[in-house]
Amino acid sequence: MRAITVSPGREAPLEVCELADPEPGSGEMLVQGLALGVCGTDREVLAGGHGALPEGQERLVLGHESLGRVRWAPEGSGFTAGDLAVGVVRRPDPVPCGACARGEFDMCRNGRFTERGIKGADGYGAQEWVVEPEYAVRLDPRLERVGVLAEPASVVAKAWEQIERIGGRSWFDPQRVLVTGAGPIGLLAALLGKRRGLDVHVLDRHTDGPKPAVVGDLGAEYHTGDIERVMSDLVPDIVVEATGAARPVFEALAGTSPYGVVCLTGVSPSGRRITVDAGSLNRDIVLENDAVVGSVNANLRHYRQAAEYLAAADAAWLERIITRRVPVERAVDAFDRNADDIKPIVALDPSAE
Score class of each variant (00 low, 15 high):
Arg109Gln: 09
Glu115Ala: 15
Ile118Gly: 04
Glu115Gly: 13
Cys100Arg: 13
Ala121Asn: 06
Glu104Phe: 06
Arg112Gly: 15
Gly117Met: 13
Glu115Ile: 06
Asp106Pro: 05
Asp122Val: 09
Asp93Met: 04
Gly125Val: 00
Asp93Ile: 02
Arg116Thr: 04
Asn110Val: 11
Arg116Asp: 00
Cys108Pro: 08
Gln127Lys: 02
Pro94Thr: 06
Gly103Ser: 01
Cys108Asp: 04
Arg116Gln: 09
Ile118Leu: 14
Ala99Ile: 08
Lys119Met: 03
Gly120Asp: 06
Arg102Gln: 15
Pro96Val: 09
Gly98Ile: 09
Ile118Cys: 12
Tyr124Arg: 08
Cys97Val: 12
Cys100Thr: 11
Gly111Ala: 12
Glu115Gln: 14
Gly120Phe: 03
Arg116Phe: 02
Phe105Lys: 05
Thr114Asp: 01
Gly98Tyr: 09
Asn110Glu: 01
Asp106Phe: 03
Gln127Gly: 12
Thr114Leu: 12
Lys119Trp: 00
Cys97Gly: 01
Gly98Glu: 14
Ala99Gly: 00
Asp106Cys: 07
Gly123Leu: 14
Gly111Thr: 08
Gly98Gln: 11
Met107Gly: 04
Gln127Asn: 12
Gly117Lys: 08
Pro92Asn: 02
Gln127Met: 04
Gly123Cys: 09
Ala101Trp: 09
Pro94Arg: 13
Gly111Tyr: 03
Cys97Met: 09
Asp106Leu: 04
Ile118Glu: 10
Ala101Asn: 11
Glu104Ala: 15
Phe105Tyr: 15
Asp93Val: 05
Gly125Leu: 00
Tyr124Asn: 10
Glu115Cys: 13
Gly120Val: 01
Gly117Pro: 10
Ala101Tyr: 08
Arg116Cys: 03
Cys100Glu: 05
Gly103Tyr: 09
Asp93Glu: 13
Gly103Ile: 07
Gly98Pro: 01
Cys108Ser: 05
Asp122Ile: 08
Gly117Val: 00
Asn110Phe: 07
Gly103Leu: 04
Phe113Ile: 00
Thr114Glu: 03
Ala126Ile: 00
Val95Cys: 08
Asp106Met: 09
Val95Ile: 05
Ala99Asp: 12
Gly103Ala: 05
Arg112Pro: 02
Arg109Lys: 09
Asn110Arg: 02
Asp106His: 13
Glu115Ser: 15
Ala101Lys: 11
Phe113Leu: 12
Gly103Trp: 01
Ala99Glu: 14
Lys119Gln: 12
Phe105Arg: 03
Cys108Leu: 10
Gly125Ser: 02
